[in-house]
Nucleic acid binder design. Sequence first.
DNA 1: CTCGTCACCGTAACCGGTTAAATCCTCCTG
DNA 2: CAGGAGGATTTAACCGGTTACGGTGACGAG
Lengths: 355, 355
Amino acid sequence: MLRKKTLEKRQPANDRTALAARIKDVALEAGVSTATVSHVINKTKHVTDRTRERVLGAIERCNYYPNAHARTLASGRSKMIGLLVSDIANPFFPELVKSFETASFDRGYNIILLNTNYDAKRAADYVRRLIELKVAGVALMTSELDPALIDELARKRVNVVFHNLGTVGQHMSNMLVDYRVGIEEAVYHLVSLGHRKIVHVSGPACFRSAVIRREAFIESMLRHLPEVPATVYEGDFKFEGGRRAASEILAGGEMPTGVVVANDMMAFGVIQEFRAAGLTIPRDVSIVGFDDISFAAQTDPPLTTVHSPRLEIGRRAVEALMMTIERPGQQGVEVRIPTYLVKRGSTAPPPMGAR
Amino acid sequence: MLRKKTLEKRQPANDRTALAARIKDVALEAGVSTATVSHVINKTKHVTDRTRERVLGAIERCNYYPNAHARTLASGRSKMIGLLVSDIANPFFPELVKSFETASFDRGYNIILLNTNYDAKRAADYVRRLIELKVAGVALMTSELDPALIDELARKRVNVVFHNLGTVGQHMSNMLVDYRVGIEEAVYHLVSLGHRKIVHVSGPACFRSAVIRREAFIESMLRHLPEVPATVYEGDFKFEGGRRAASEILAGGEMPTGVVVANDMMAFGVIQEFRAAGLTIPRDVSIVGFDDISFAAQTDPPLTTVHSPRLEIGRRAVEALMMTIERPGQQGVEVRIPTYLVKRGSTAPPPMGAR
DNA sequence: CTCGTCACCGTAACCGGTTAAATCCTCCTG
DNA sequence: CAGGAGGATTTAACCGGTTACGGTGACGAG
């Protein structure tokens, strides 16, 4: 890769244009110094109109693309953001990624997407790579994070934004998605329709989000129906888990009239299993999902579900990062994002006999 | 960002460990030159076991992370790949991205995800950024690509892999997904079930993939039912477009017994609209989708659809890129990936009266 | 004992930019 | 007309690595 010595370096700029022109070639072509070219590109110093035009013309003629690596190396500023997600194929993430990407793009940043696949070791490997890349910031939209990693990020003074995790601090922000309000609205919705036998199908206990939703459900039940014991079936956040939970419910003693499910995929599984058993939704049982994935509006019946604002999470996460990137030493922020119920067709008053 | 002069540079390594240790600090700590450290890290030259251990120890003690930018700048080799997609929220892409990411990770590459949102201007902007980043390669998994852009990539000798597009050439490969075989299987499947009145709901004519599927449908019909005119309704690749197409079909004269739909989302729309009109799937009408998105297996009835192997596309795209990255000057490859029919519950023999 | 070879390691140029500080003009003021 | 003042440019050090090339010491052969 090293260029041959003196002679070749003196070759006219246009010999290089076919390949990669360097700032030096542009400077030569424009008859100015590399510093001036740099200042024109970055608008870091005032330059005469005439000079600027000469430089811009030269850039054009050389078909010059500044080398981003040389740039960040010299300036210490990078235009890249790392985005860690657990599983991009999980319908929760694509929209989050999309809005995150859009918001980053608008600010001139590129994102490096990292899919941990729920693997903590892999997440650790990724974090190391991101540090080596000297990224401007990292968004950790996953849950499987070793505290040691977070320490490492803190030591390296990397700007970070978490998703329902770490405490905020120097260059560390947190997106606090409030699952509670959504679950509360869901339970209240069913209760005000007249339901009293309401159960919950939760996610796996190893997911923090699942636990929070579960606890929120229990709390809400206690608030609205203190005399009814809150029953919970554990699923796996997947379609099959929903089916299994539903068949457990069917096998159990008393049939509930309302089910609050911890995510939409499982809710679909529950619905399918109930249907297979001859029940009609929402006539016999009301179902509430969680997430409001894009499909939820288009199933039959359309799913009543708690909307978790993925677009907003992505956008606000970038904003939070920008805050700490642009003002180093600034304290991070805690952004609270509420969830809310979207009423559709999978809920209705309980059947007469069950009231 | 520039460090203060001479004195500070002489400070002992451990003053820097808290921040970012440089290769120089590691060399000092190990009592060797930076060249040796570099060789140990990259295994580019043989080094005594004793020396290697000293270096590794120093790296450990300094908590040293090599600067990736300095590395690519000096070596001219980058460990990043650009991945352009049209819309990550489109259910076709997440799995593709996932397998692409996994395959890249395994080879030590990081991916930069770029979402063009079907916007050619944006795609152009992205390509420019990627060139500035001197990425090792670019995967263009979108359709809205200006030929001028492709020229630019060719001029800059960037390794590229397309998705059903550009011809292969120097450092340019192509993933040729064969929609034809899948459509053919779909039509043949319906024909052998006894269907004769089969129509197609296509995607918008501005999508190349939609046009190919449409033409494949017409061809297959001509092959199997030369006496029946092939009817096509144009949709938009979205749920709503499916519904609209279905209502057109219902409004039209003769009701078909089989519908081949150009993607699954529209197929769901078609099914919903037919149901609303009192029809039962597949008793009254058989529906075949295209894509085999993960939901397809879990709807009611499960959707018979053409599987388009997204996981394989991602994996093979990375392989193709690696080929041209590792052997520069090598001709690109054309990878042909077939699609195939997955029979599920949305197809059945036509109703008796219609045979 | 001298010399060549070989294995190992260090020196220093270079990658392509940024930017503090120095230089060079031009113009204004006393 | 000398002496700044101040804006436009240039000079050159630096970012943190890689790597061609040269130097050094041990050792075997002549």
